[in-house]
Structures are given as C-alpha cells and as structure tokens.
Design a protein around this nucleic acid. Structure first.
Ligand code: ZN
Ligand code: ZN
Ligand code: ZN
Ligand code: ZN
Lengths: 159, 159
DNA sequence: CCGTACTTGATACAAAGTATCATCTGCAAC
DNA sequence: GTTGCAGATGATACTTTGTATCAAGTACGG
C-alpha cells in the first residue's frame, strides 16, 4: 500500500488546491469558491462521485449549489484536466496524473467502486494504430475496464 | 466500398430476423413483435440510435411502444449479443460481428455519426494485460474512440 | 478601489432510464 | 387445434442525469 494521498488528507487537499490555483493563473481563469469546493469534495471523498452525489455533499455547507452549478464546475475542472468523467458510471473522479493532457484508461471495480487511472503505452499505441488503420483522426479515447479488483476477489466469500 | 448490408436492405433485414429467430430458439427465449420491430428499426436506420429516437421511429406503427418497453427490448437484444450500447453517446447500434460474445472497440465520427465496430487483437491483449497487472478480473471492456472519419476530413471545407 | 468580463444563482426544462403491477401471449405439451 | 402458464408486454408513474436562460454578483487586472 503506497502512502499517496491517504497519509495526510489535509496536506493532500492543500496541495490540490495549490495546483488548481496555479493552473487557473497559468490559463487566465478565475479561481472561485464553487471550484475550490467541488475539488475539495472530490478529493476528500477519495472515489468517483456522480454529479448529484456531489451536490448532496456540497449543499450542507453551501445551500446555493444546484445541479447546473455543479455541472458547470465539473466542466471547468475537466477542461483544466484535473477531473475526468467516467462514461460507464456517469460519475466524476479526480485525475491521478498531474501534468498536461493525457490519454488514460480506467479500471473500475464493480464490487467496491474503486477506480484506478492507468496510462498504458501499449493501449495508447494500439488505439492510435487502429484509428490510423480505419482512417480516423482520433481526439478522444474512452477506455473503461470493469471487473473485480484483487481485494474484492480475496474477500469473495459471498456469491 | 464493400457491398455489405446496403446492397439489398430487404435481404439484410430478412437475414437479421432469421438470425434473431435462431438465437431465440437456441437460448429458449421468446421471439416477440417488439423484439423484431426494434431489430428492424436499428437495421434500416443503419446507424446508432438513442432509445428515444428508436421510440419515435416505433410509435407510428405501434402506438404501444414506451420508453420502458424500448429499454427492455434493447436489454434483451444486448444480452443476445446482437446489439451494443455506446456509452459515450448513450445510443445503441447493431452488432457488425455475428457470432459469439466478443470484445470490440468502437470508432465514432463526431462529424457524421458513423460508427465502426472493430475487433483489434492488439487492444484486446493490451487491456487484458493491464487488467492482470493491476489485479483486476475484467468482465467488460469499453473502448470508444472518437474522432473524424476519412470521408469527413476529405469534405472538411468548413471549420 | 473600480470596472467589467466572466461566473454564479435561480428557475425551469429536457433527456435518459427504472419500478411496479395487471394483462396478455409465444410456444411447448397434449 | 386447444390449453396452460412462465415470461413478456402495456400502462403509468417516477427517478436520475443533464441543459437553457438570464438577472445578479464577484475575481482580479489595472
Ligand atoms: Zn488523469
Ligand atoms: Zn473492489
Ligand atoms: Zn459486436
Ligand atoms: Zn464522418
């Protein structure tokens, strides 16, 4: 078990907010309260959340949150590249690979909901090649692999 | 340009319905009117359709169609493996690879909506490998590649 | 501290998908 | 053929997910 974000949640949050601040400055975007709040909720949740789950988490401490505002904010964070959308579960998750734009694959455990963000060279190359072979100039590559994670298979007493 | 289904639409429909009949018999499933109708609409449309587009096509000749019935029927056809769901566009498309269960990739043109169903060995192997490396027993692999197809790039006068 | 371009808040709505239950029917058995 | 009935449909209502619009508010460069 690596000692990533879980070791010191407060520090991790601080780092993430700093990163958001930097990105906004670099790209001439405003850093507003809802943007900070959504980032914070996604980080502390530590898992993928649907827009409405997020809304439920935000409302207690900001009654002005609405579906529209949550979606707007998520769109913004996705454009910055620090949040990804999982199409297969209609949910949103923090990027685990700080840095520029990147093509990733998601592994999703159907038992515990864990989401792992991978950057596999082999898959990136293979998809690019397929696009070329079929004459497509690709600009988006959705790869979402669903199954059961190691931990959940271990504790697979039931079913 | 290969002479697949477009050569003789009526024949293609007949073949598809026969195939549905066989599959139903093999698997002890009932062949009902809505199942035939949905298959027919997907085939004659020749493209991916959302559930509600399908509903609009079905209603004129069967006023009893509802969202619930369309989704039920689509679920059935997906279980048979002759229809796939495109997560990124929330739409449904006929399978282009008659035969058993298979893992496919979709290439989707964002300009004309064309959908190509590919079965790429390299991608299949790479995703399986990634799953193993990360300890996931995969049971679903969504690969949807979006871009602009060759034809649409050719006629790319605008934008 | 000002001004304003950009963002938010509020509202209403559209699209996508599901739950429930009474009624009907495909089809295997007779 | 006719019948029986498990499994499917029809009808209805509802939940979840996502967007459009526009007036009011504010982050931040000057
Ligand atoms: Zn990422
Ligand atoms: Zn798990
Ligand atoms: Zn297929
Ligand atoms: Zn095209």
């Amino acid at each position: 078990m690596r000692q990533g974000n879980k070791a010191s949640p407060a520090r991790a949050l601080e780092r993430a907010l700093h990163r958001l601040e930097d990105l906004c400055r670099e790209r001439g975007q405003r850093l507003t309260r809802p943007r900070r709040a959504v980032l914070a909720k996604l980080l502390t949740a530590g898992r993928a959340l649907s827009a409405y789950e997020l809304l439920d988490l935000l409302r207690p401490e900001d009654g002005k949150s609405t579906a529209a505002s949550v979606y707007r904010t998520l769109d913004f964070l996705m454009a910055l590249g620090i949040v990804h959308r999982l199409e297969s579960t209609r949910s949103f998750v923090l990027c685990e690979h700080p840095g520029g734009p990147h093509w990733v694959q998601f592994l999703i455990c159907r038992r515990c909901g864990q989401v792992v963000e991978a950057e596999d060279e082999r898959i990136a190359a293979a998809t690019e090649r397929l696009g070329q072979r079929l004459g497509f100039a690709l600009d988006q590559r959705i790869v979402e692999l669903t199954g059961v994670c190691e931990g959940c298979r271990g504790s697979a007493a039931r079913h």
